[in-house]
Write a protein that binds this DNA or RNA. Sequence first.
RNA 1: GGAGAGAUGGUCGAGUUGGUUUAAGGCACCGGUCUUGAAAACCGGCGUAGUCGUGAGGCUACCGUGAGUUCGAAUCUCACUCUCUCCGCCA
Length: 424
Amino acid sequence: MLDIKLLRNDPQLLERALLKSKGKFDKDGFMSLDVKRRELIFKAETMKSDQNAATKLIPQYKKEGKDTSSLMEEMRSLSNEIKELDQQIRQIDEQIAELVLTIPNIPNEAVPLGDSDTDNQEVRKWGTPAKFDFEPKAHWDIGEALDILDFSKAAKVTGARFTFYKNAGARLERALMNFMLDLHTTKHGYVEVFPPFMVHRNSMVGTGQLPKFEEDAFKVANTEYFLIPTAEVPVTNMYREQILDVKELPIYHTAYSACFRAEAGSAGRDTRGLIRQHQFNKVELVKFTTPETSYVELEKLTNDAEEVLQLLGLPYRVVKLCIGDLGFSSALTYDLEVWMPSYNRYVEISSCSNFESFQARRADIKFRRGPNEKTEFVHTLNGSGVALGRTTACILETYQKADGSVEVPEVLRKYMGGLEVIKA
RNA sequence: GGAGAGAUGGUCGAGUUGGUUUAAGGCACCGGUCUUGAAAACCGGCGUAGUCGUGAGGCUACCGUGAGUUCGAAUCUCACUCUCUCCGCCA
């Protein structure tokens, strides 16, 4: 959510935000609603002021034995008028709120122009994609051959886009989770959180998944609960409607969670393997910072996620998303893309964003610099640190051998009871 | 699932026969006096948001949420949410 006053005074900002939403927004209608609202408020408040004055006179008159019936009659009609005005104001407020909630965040000046991922800017590359002296297999074939992934059983039990991990596969996924959490908590200074995997609708609004993208989420029937699409939602909303002390900032949290996504609109894409699932595991990084430090913190957060890939020996690149590819709530996003041999290209494995005050304003997360200072909105950031399923896929493909076995990356061995090679 | 209690400003807590309460008071916090410094004491300040105004400042709303009664609601009525206690069931 953006600041209405800011939009009122600087419509140019609105234009920039709308570059993302492809201009479907009725800007003039929005501006005139804002004017209308303030007119009505002024009228109503003047009337309320009169009403309050009369309300004080009535007991005084009664005490003096004066007749109050005509004044009371007058106030009765004034009261009705006020109720009517309040009703109108409430309607306009709702309309404005609805509109404002659908305006995306304003992209940072550094965000490149462009419509799609082809316009993203490569920032840096690490490692070189593996070369094989045999015909490498895709991870879904490797997984089934080694009996560590089972897609057809999951399809029977649940449906498409679900997976059973088995044997060393299940253990690998669990090892990755522990490896990442340990790295972030011990080396990078994040405080670990294990969040609820369902949240109330209010939390989904707070971080920007709702009201605009309800079809992307799984809603639990007969409740107002949603399965979380990322741990970002519960962890960011931990501090909803709170005023933090500046001394508490920056706050760093890392959290494992399962993530649930309806993947509406991606039917037919990435139908094989672990790349696009309705349920996947992820270790998330979340930060709350002061406005002046948020971009430095974004660089650090991105580096923290990169280190996971470096330690696992997985080649990747970092790209800066262009306006067209930028998420609804984000002001600037770096994607980490890992080299996926079966796709023969880089595939997104982490998305690190600075939301500036956009989420904080929606979720009402503030801080105070000192005892007599005004409150300000914090900046929120988050990034995957990183997605486990895609990492597993990438490890299987990158570390596969000609005989069909898969080497376990060095750093994971202590999490797998010393296992060095996954064999059939 | 059953029974009961509760929700007031950063915190504690008064106010519930509807009208000088414009939400008392304590604590915490901030500024000042005093002091070599600090503490104590004393004096003053101290919520959030909207709106009008160039400004000083004014006005309006907010006592869990929403609706209602009334000239007027923290206070009365109804619904809902959450928290706590006890019972039952349960990993």
